[in-house]
Design a protein around this nucleic acid. Structure first.
Lengths: 335, 335
DNA sequence: AGATCAAAAGTTATCGATAACAATGTCCGA
DNA sequence: TCGGACATTGTTATCGATAACTTTTGATCT
């Protein structure tokens, strides 16, 4: 497979009898040329199957980059798939390209990814979470590009932040369950060391319960990926230790569905014998026989707003540093 | 936020007292320098927080690009999330960066994405599916970069292919159901116009049934995204027309689970009254009360092999053009 | 008609790296 | 001690676009 077409601005310029600067101006659609030249240039570019070289463009002028880096904790998570989709749609529409990365919930991997990404001199970067290594922060500050931290709200972002408080999600669910009369609550999670967000939800949950006078009885946090199996076996382990819990809050919906499966298996009635509460708002959850009690996170919206904030900053438009996203508690039938 | 560090090879060269070519050689880890120079250069680069400019590198020599474009039909699909993960892990490990795109199952959107991607002069491109617009194919041939088409097997790839036959998946399920004694089968799908792969599975399914003498009774293909709701309502519609079906094959697992939910709602016993069969191998499916009958696709593996094939070609190593991936029929308890 | 000014087009320098080639220097055997 | 082989280093040109500046053209107005 050999590169056939390799027309450059120069070639088009020669073919049209103008200078390559004029060609550049025409193709970027600015001003400084007559209608007649424009037509001739465009016709020539078309005929010669001209493919612009954005490498050269981005290289010659920092502002010309249309590359945005986006790093998520996991690519296989349903939630982040939607975030990514929101980002990608918005950025594609606005003429940008997305370079992805996945940090597996490890800050060090995020930094490693960033070190690669900044070599491409991206126009901006979107990160998930508000915790980063010192090296990562320094790298970004030196790069001088706009940065949006999403998902986990921070009031003192590196640059901009679009997200919500995981702690508050936990608080809200805790208060809700107390109102529903639950008194003996447990928590089942699963995460790598560095997952501060699930941790924050659990802490919010525990805080709300304590304030109400019925503290969290026990929790089981597996060092595993937070999926269906972890929910199933996590609940089993927790109930073995504390058989008399009356509600369990899970790290996410996948795990809660695993928990539901365990209950069904053991003949534990939900919600009569045990309440099951998830988090995140997974599509699957809505067609379960009983609607899952959970918190819905507007994932696509977060992605979209993050992308738009980034582009606004790039264009020099005013942007608010912190965008708070509202999550929605769905009462469901399992809590 | 201002760009602070902007050290270039030139700066390091000056600081070290060598030429920038020598610095370039050291930092790329080739040969042609003494151990002493290497240490001094590396120390200087470190001290000056040197960030290589891959834009300049890729620009000056075509081989230097470590950028790979990857286009999937949907970013929110669980299956493609895993494919993407497989690709990303493999490419990251090998020192490449991934630029993503999403075509929403529309060939025209794939071409539009490609037009943007090739301007970055990527080292290679991974596409999903084997159908592409004429413009897209021409673009790729002119670009002269390696291309891997994944997911849907083609024996005459643009360049390389890693995938499996959707038609054969349908055949296999059809034969399986006939062996199990099913005689009155239906199909429920959902897709955009251009989704040839779901179409291929249905055709394989219908072919197997016809060969056995019990042709496909009816099918319902919604113009909707192939999710839980589409499965639920698609089955409802199909059963209204043909109440006496004894098995239904769904476009994918999500839809099959929607179908299961409908059965549960209506008191239809599965698999006694009606068999429910999915496709794809969704994690969630494995913790359902009854294990879903489905075909498991090794998504991550496909991504990994596609990435590795691409890199092998880039390094000039021998690569087989077509890699056939085995899918696995899981008998389950719902078929 | 000449002055004025804006639009249209051209010129030159530059971004930061790499390729290709040239120029040293060093060591060793003949 | 000479010369070749090889390792080390330097020089020059180049990739394709854009920024900033200059020149030309043409229209308008007094």
């Amino acid at each position: 497979m050999e590169r056939k077409s390799k027309a450059t601005l120069e070639d088009i310029a020669r073919a049209t009898g103008v200078s390559k600067m004029t060609v550049s101006r025409v193709l970027r659609g600015g001003s400084g040329f007559s209608g007649e030249t424009r037509d001739r240039v465009i016709a020539a570019a078309d005929r010669m199957a001209y493919v612009p070289n954005r490498l050269a463009a981005a290289f010659s002028s920092v502002e010309a980059s249309t590359l945005v880096g986006m790093c998520v904790p996991r690519l296989t998570s349903g939630l982040f798939g939607h975030v990514l989709d929101g980002v990608d749609r918005a950025l594609t529409r606005l003429g940008y390209q997305v370079m992805i990365g996945c940090n597996n919930h490890e800050l060090a991997e995020e930094e490693a990814w960033l070190r690669q990404v900044v070599t491409w001199r991206p126009a901006g970067v979107i990160l998930s979470g508000r915790s980063h290594t010192a090296g990562a922060v320094e790298l970004l500050q030196n790069a001088g590009t706009p940065v949006v931290e999403i998902w986990d709200l921070t009031t003192s972002p590196i640059d901009m932040s679009v997200g919500f408080s995981h702690f508050d999600c936990g608080i809200e669910i805790g208060q809700f369950l107390i109102r529903k009369g639950r008194r003996r609550a447990g928590y089942v999670g699963a995460s790598s060391r560095a997952d501060v967000m699930g941790q924050a939800r659990m802490e919010g949950f525990a805080t709300a319960l304590s304030r109400a006078g019925f503290p969290l009885i026990d929790s089981e946090v597996l060092l595993d990926s937070p999926g269906f199996y972890a929910g199933y076996y996590g609940l089993e382990t927790l109930l073995t230790r504390c058989p008399d819990l009356d509600v369990v809050y899970f790290h996410n919906d996948e795990m809660a569905i695993g928990g539901l499966a365990f209950c069904q298996q053991r003949g534990i009635r939900v919600p009569e014998d045990l309440g099951i509460v998830g988090w995140g708002g997974m599509e699957a959850a809505s067609v379960l026989p009983r609607r899952l009690t959970t918190t819905i996170v507007p994932t696509t919206l977060i992605g979209k707003l993050a992308a738009e904030a980034l582009v606004a900053r790039l264009k020099g438009e005013p942007v608010q540093d912190v965008t708070v996203i509202a999550t929605r508690l769905v009462a469901g039938e399992t809590g």
